[in-house]
Design a binder for these strands. Sequence first.
DNA 1: TTCATATTTCGCTCCGGAGCGAAGTAAGGC
DNA 2: GCCTTACTTCGCTCCGGAGCGAAATATGAA
Lengths: 228, 228
Amino acid sequence: MEDSRLASVAAAIAEPARARMLCSLLDGKARTATELAIVGEVSASTASAHLARLKTEQLVSMLTQGRHRYYRLHNHDVASALEALLLISNTPKAPFNPNTPHYLQAARTCYDHMAGSVAVQLHDRLFAMGWLQADAGDASQYVLSEQGQQALSKLGMDLPELAKKRRRFACACLDWSERSPHLGGALGAALLILAKKRGWAEQDLDSRRLQISRAGQNAMKDIFGITI
Amino acid sequence: MEDSRLASVAAAIAEPARARMLCSLLDGKARTATELAIVGEVSASTASAHLARLKTEQLVSMLTQGRHRYYRLHNHDVASALEALLLISNTPKAPFNPNTPHYLQAARTCYDHMAGSVAVQLHDRLFAMGWLQADAGDASQYVLSEQGQQALSKLGMDLPELAKKRRRFACACLDWSERSPHLGGALGAALLILAKKRGWAEQDLDSRRLQISRAGQNAMKDIFGITI
DNA sequence: TTCATATTTCGCTCCGGAGCGAAGTAAGGC
DNA sequence: GCCTTACTTCGCTCCGGAGCGAAATATGAA
């Protein structure tokens, strides 16, 4: 029984146009049906059918706003599953594939937080510096130390606001290019917002690429001791 | 580019017969083409074609032994991706689905280690008892404390042998029914072997179900303080 | 060697679903 | 009200690939 559901979910991802749509949504943004038709390289009517299917399979959810219909990934689990599939897709027949653009590996977005080697380094440094630690009660969760709370507040993060959110506070999120975890959850998302606000990083509009500015490179070095 | 690979991998999983085969291999065992034809509910010739496709997509690998050809999941990443897909497949339209058999949630195998609520409780107790702790250098890894090493050695685990293995020593593995981590890696696998050797658990031949014996229930209670 | 079993290859049928454009519906802007 | 834009529904074509059985190939057993 469960395997037939597995098959239908996989089939929903399996169509190239739908795969392109889903990949583009991995950055966490919501897109209109027309935008997704362009990304999927199909006509509007075809895209409409594809999106209907993705919706019934609960891979995306829809939000109507005026005459636009915005689609986004249904939840984090969907994003995780897509990342897991991308991980096993990216070791193809060609045993050595250096085509993957370099900047993508260095810094990109994963759903709504930072990913790539910079994000993995950052994740590890946050632990090494003692800002972050594993939750004693729930090992899959992270919590901020007293020191980490003070430091992030000073950088301009609104921690009380963050604590109010219903979503998971902080957790490991496997990075498919680095095969190591980076920081996910509300804290990971807040960190990306902070980085953009302070001008450390700029998000490309049409890809998952994340541009690290000179100020960002300096900040990484001065605050976290990471050289990019 | 990467999305077309994603689509072809998803398509390989998407066919119901192939999905059944892959699900059956999730327990980590290798199966012959004939066995998988039965699991997939297709003829031998059809199964052969399916298996060829799964192999070129690197989802399974093959091992020839006499006139048998054994197939198994290609690696742990494939198992993880399948589990991630199962996770999002198991929250279907029917919002409340109590059909899932109870014993499957209580204890089952995930690739080569224990999963289900017992495994999740065990994972958490190992931390609470101080046997296991997050690796200081690599937060995604776990290490045994001095106390944990002594206790597991006394239970009959060959830790020096375990340390020799090239595979990841111990790490969190997300449990799709519990949505919490259980123990994966070499230590997780060794724990399952230990449990079977000591007669605590018995693995079903045809499913991922794990039978916990009375001795196993006593051991869980006495050693880890877990009531099943 | 000869037979039985395991697996693949070949030749064929058939169906789901992906594609498009045209027409229909819905929601601003004027 | 009318026009434009956004999106869906309808009607149709067409192709990939899943299905099977028969024959071919390979391996072990007698």
